[in-house]
Amino acid sequence: MARETSKTPIPILERFRSRRALASRFRLGPAPLAGAALLCLLISVLYLALQIRTIFSDQLRQEYIALVLEAVERAESARNMVGVWQRLPEGSDARSDGYRHARQELAGRLASLAAVVNASPSGAPQVPPSALSPDSDPGSTDALLGSVSAYWHAQRDIVSADVRVRISHVANTLIALGALLFGMLFTALAMYAKRTRQLAGRSHKFEHAALHDAMTGLPNRRKFFAMLEEAAASPSADSVLHRIAVLYIDLDGFKRVNDSLGHRLGDEFLIAVSRRFRDSVRQGDVVARIGGDEFAVLIGSFSTDAELGEIAQRLIGCVSQTDELMGTGLVRASIGIAIFPDPIEDYRRLVAAADETMYQVKRNGKNGYAFAVRAN
């Protein structure tokens, strides 16, 4: 009886000792805990950096989408104006001229929209060249504008929702790991700096695509107006009267190049003449493609009106040389010149005044230039 009692506790003691050994084997000391905390911190910082980088990238996409939607609104406004003129009774010269001008304006707006949409780095549906003709079917134009507007509004909603979700994730992560992140602040900043440099590269691509014409590489309408405002606000320190000028250029006969010789040759013509425009002006002057076959040159400083006339002659020569070298025999140039502050007192009207003057040149025989005068 006593012998059996002495043997009973042995298995229980052995099990207890084995459990203690197992627990001591998996017990975490300070070093493993610190390593685990550091690993969690690094993972969290990386996650935050990636999320913030994506948020910045999405914000740039939102700006680009806003630019596209702005171009859509302008094209829709031009399309509505065509409809207004179309509904007027036929037979009057005013109606005919107004309708033709509205169709030309619509074609320019569609060309601007196509340049922005087709330059999208995100692989968005392209605007077909057939939609850019001034004689395109109004129904097809309405369908095109509707599909482009719907697609980019959907993209804006998707990007906005993605930004909200990512911001929420970032906020929750910061709350959960605030104390740990504060202790490792310099490490987090070092890792974030690397990703900021990567984001800067992407930001530059988006910015360039948003502010430059994809085909010619020239500044677009948005960039041109920003540079015009900067030139008007920063007069030369050594000049008594700061004057700036805008030369608005329209390629006469260019539509016939696209219609008879094809859009490919038309694109090559625009690229070639854009290169000659840049080479013919001074380094400080700005050449921009406003849309379609319309260009603008910003002259930041000049001495006399005759100097502007010489520049206009060189630009007309650029078009003639390009036309001769490419063998089209169709294209010339009409140029309107507007000067601030005399006679155009508001620099914000420079482009419009130069545009109006250019149309006067076209009505008076084309292939020349004229200066804008003060409005009565």
Rank of each mutant, 00 (worst) to 15 (best):
N118R: 05
Y347V: 09
R243P: 08
S203Q: 10
R202S: 14
S260P: 00
I158E: 15
A36Q: 11
A354Y: 09
L181N: 07
A37G: 03
G91T: 04
T357V: 07
H212D: 02
G291E: 03
F225Q: 14
T173C: 11
T173H: 10
S96N: 13
E73V: 01
Y347D: 08
Y248I: 02
L325E: 15
N364T: 04
D293E: 13
E90M: 11
V159W: 05
F295R: 00
G365H: 11
K7D: 12
M191H: 08
S122D: 15
G368K: 08
L185H: 15
A200V: 03
V240K: 12
S122Y: 14
L22A: 13
R87K: 04
F26Y: 09
A338E: 06
A37E: 14
L315S: 12
A150T: 15
V170L: 03
I311F: 01
R243Y: 03
R166A: 13
L42G: 13
Q313I: 04
A372Y: 10
G253H: 07
F302K: 00
I158W: 08
R103I: 00
P32Y: 00
R314S: 04
V163E: 06
D58L: 05
G266Y: 00
V159C: 12
N118T: 04
A111D: 00
D250A: 14
Q51V: 03
W152S: 14
A75D: 03
S112H: 08
V72R: 04
Y47C: 09
A34I: 00
D342E: 13
Y47T: 14
K7C: 10
I311R: 04
A333N: 07
R363A: 13
R314I: 01
S334M: 06
Q313W: 09
T328K: 05
R166D: 11
G35T: 06
A370D: 12
S77C: 07
G266Q: 02
M215R: 02
F277I: 00
L60A: 07
V319A: 08
A226I: 08
L350K: 05
L60R: 01
A154T: 03
S92E: 10
D135V: 05
G292L: 01
G309A: 14
E73Q: 02
Q155T: 07
R278G: 01
R332A: 14
P341G: 13
A375G: 14
R374T: 14
E14Q: 10
Q155E: 14
L265W: 03
G217P: 08
V170I: 05
F225L: 14
K255M: 04
T216S: 06
G262A: 06
Q86W: 09
